[in-house]
Amino acid sequence: MKKIFKFIIYSSVLVVIWWAIKLFSGTPDFILPSPDIVIKSMIDNYYLLFSNALITLYEIIVGFILGTLLGLITGIQLIISKNSRKLLLPFILLSQAIPIFALAPILTLWLGYGIWSKVIMTMIIIYFPITISFYEGLKRIDPMVVNLISIMGAGKLSFLFKVRIPFALPQLSSGLKLAAAFAPIGAVIGEWVGSSKGLGYLMLYASGRVQIDLMFASIIVLAIFTVILYNIVSFITNQLTKWDPKSYIN
């Protein structure tokens, strides 16, 4: 409740700043529409926004889930196999050196205008923070704990799932939170490059028709998605790392 109240307060402050800039700068509506025009556009284009937002939301969620799974599997693979570390780590780093905008047209060419090119874009954008944070978390186990567990006669799987992975959760949760903030960017970039649906497509459509109010409305909906996704991920990871006093800042 407190969080929702805070969110309303912060949003209201932003709207007031936006209004003030508009009022005092005298910028015309086709460059910077005032908040009331954008709200009116949201109401008028309710169905258009809703139907396109659902597509983007679907791409974000599927991409986020698949990207997370892929990142977790890679993290485990990296920790259990030295050869994987040698082979995979350079490629993982290389994947980050390629600009995401350069990959989008290739993925659209390969996978078409459907949702999968956007899902893959989302997966690519979140894969790195999840994989690296999880791998770093898995690495950071106290060697004395490893000795204790080894003396207790734990099997490799038991050690991995009952000790290593729980120890890695605080680090992984940072990666997941970053991923939650990045995932919508991946989906929208994919839609910009080639699509006939989604919020990214709607932004381009509105921009082409100089409907700046609709463009702003799409951005606001996307921002709301990001905030909601971040908070859901944050809530889940906080529950999973409740035991870690470092996870909380008073």
Partner: peptide, 17 residues
């Protein structure tokens, strides 16, 4: 026994979760 040793060190090594 099958398991011969138990270990106690300076750090308690309790699993925090």
């Amino acid at each position: 026994n099958k398991r011969t040793f138990s270990w106690m060190s300076q750090d308690d090594l309790l699993l925090p979760w």
